[in-house]
Amino acid sequence: MALQLKIIGILLIVLSAIHVVFPRYFNWKEEFHQVSLINRQMMYIHTFFIAFVVLLMGLLCLTSSDELTGTSLGKKVALGLSVFWSFRLLFQFFGYSSRLWKGKWFETSVHVLFSILWVYLSVVFGVVYLY
């Protein structure tokens, strides 16, 4: 399982880095032009902290895989991460409208890819907790 956690660590670090392109890719400057200053700043700040937490999760997996798999506290952290990513998986299907991706090749591919990633994260962290 330590190898799986190291793979997850790399994936999470890459995922955190992807957040850097969100403002430009999703055209936030134009999209948020009419939004109040507080809402605009909350979006940028929350995105930063989501990316930061995902980065920290990745670093934890890369640097502390033995502790996650071999200690009581590590297993509890793994359980928490399994629950976190399981909820993220649910939101992939019930939080976002299928109109955002259905019938669009790229968006559907991204939806499927991230659905698989959320399942992978949920299962690996769940297995770490159980064994």
Rank of each mutant, 00 (worst) to 15 (best):
L130G: 01
A51D: 03
L89P: 02
S64V: 02
L121D: 06
E107Q: 15
V112A: 05
M57V: 07
V54E: 08
K76V: 05
Y25E: 13
V14S: 10
D66P: 02
G58K: 06
L37S: 09
L55D: 03
Q41I: 04
V124I: 10
T69S: 11
S82G: 06
S65D: 09
S72A: 09
S98I: 15
Y25A: 14
S86D: 01
K76M: 10
S36T: 13
V128Q: 00
V20R: 04
K76L: 11
L79P: 04
S65L: 02
W105A: 07
I10E: 01
Y44A: 09
L130E: 03
V83Y: 00
L15D: 11
M43K: 12
G58E: 08
F114E: 15
W118M: 15
F84P: 01
I7W: 01
T71D: 00
L5S: 02
G74I: 04
A51C: 02
Y96D: 11
G126E: 00
V119E: 05
L89A: 02
Q92H: 03
H33R: 14
L62M: 05
L73H: 11
Y129T: 04
Y120C: 00
M57E: 05
G74R: 03
K76N: 12
Y44Q: 12
Q34M: 10
E107H: 14
F106H: 14
V20C: 09
W118G: 15
F87T: 15
V123C: 06
S65H: 09
H19Q: 05
E67T: 13
M42S: 07
L90W: 14
F91I: 00
L90K: 11
T71M: 00
M57I: 11
L117C: 09
M1H: 08
E31K: 15
K76F: 08
Q92I: 02
S16V: 08
I116V: 14
V20E: 07
A17W: 10
L5F: 02
G58H: 08
L15A: 13
K29N: 12
H33W: 07
S86T: 06
I38L: 09
I18R: 08
S16R: 07
K104G: 07
C61I: 04
L12A: 06
L3C: 06
K75D: 01
Q4Y: 01
W118V: 15
G95N: 14
T71Y: 00
H33V: 13
L130M: 06
V53D: 04
F26H: 12
G95E: 15
K6W: 01
K29W: 13
V112K: 00
G80L: 06
G103W: 05
F106G: 10
S16N: 05
L130T: 07
R24I: 14
K6R: 02
N27P: 05
A51W: 03
V128S: 00
L68I: 06
V110H: 05
S98Y: 11
L73R: 11
Q92S: 09
K6L: 01
I45R: 09
S97A: 14
P23M: 07
S65I: 04
L89M: 01
